[in-house]
């Protein structure tokens, strides 16, 4: 079950909408933060906090790519490979992450430090190729630059 503070947070969010179902996406973000990923228990916590059937919570959460339904690394690398990034070399960066860190799309490093998710366009095409590491945005990526950046995430 959720912590008291998470419940309170959900209550506050809920007050912003005319019905409680609308707080589902925000509540799923909170659950993901609290549990690391949307474990069955996390989804059930959301279900009971908002009085929404748990099957519905699962149905909704699996629709959205940013809700994770399996264990992720401590830090999430979200790398775009859509066209603007692709034509500027995003794919070599994927290779780099694979060779250097052993990261496959959707996978996790053996030490649990990173996970890699291949993204559709994340709106940074002017500085392609781009990635998000957790909530931080990085553009004009090169292999050296990635190595540098990742060094900051332990």
């Amino acid at each position: 079950m959720f912590s008291k503070s998470a419940i309170k947070e959900i209550e506050e969010i809920r007050a912003k909408y005319p019905d409680s179902r609308s707080a589902l996406l925000p509540a799923l973000y909170i659950a993901q933060r609290e549990y690391g990923w949307l474990t069955p228990e996390a989804m059930e916590s959301v279900a009971s906090a908002l009085n929404i059937p748990s099957a519905i919570v699962k149905g909704v959460s699996t629709f959205y790519a940013m809700f994770k339904h399996k264990q992720m690394g401590r830090h999430l690398i979200q790398l775009c490979t859509n066209i603007s990034c692709m034509i500027l070399g995003a794919e070599t960066l994927v290779d780099f992450l694979k060779n250097k860190y052993g990261l496959e799309e959707g996978g996790i490093t053996p030490n649990g430090r990173f996970s890699l998710v291949i993204m559709e366009c994340i709106g940074g095409c002017d500085v392609a190729p781009v990635m998000l590491v957790d909530n931080d945005f990085y553009g004009n990526l090169t292999e050296e630059k990635i190595e540098n950046i990742l060094g900051r995430y332990q």
Binding site: P53, A55, I56, K58, G59, V60, T62, F63
Partner: peptide, 10 residues
């Protein structure tokens, strides 16, 4: 009104 099944994924 049982809402026991859902479409999952997209």
């Amino acid at each position: 009104g049982a809402s026991a099944i859902s479409m999952v994924n997209r």
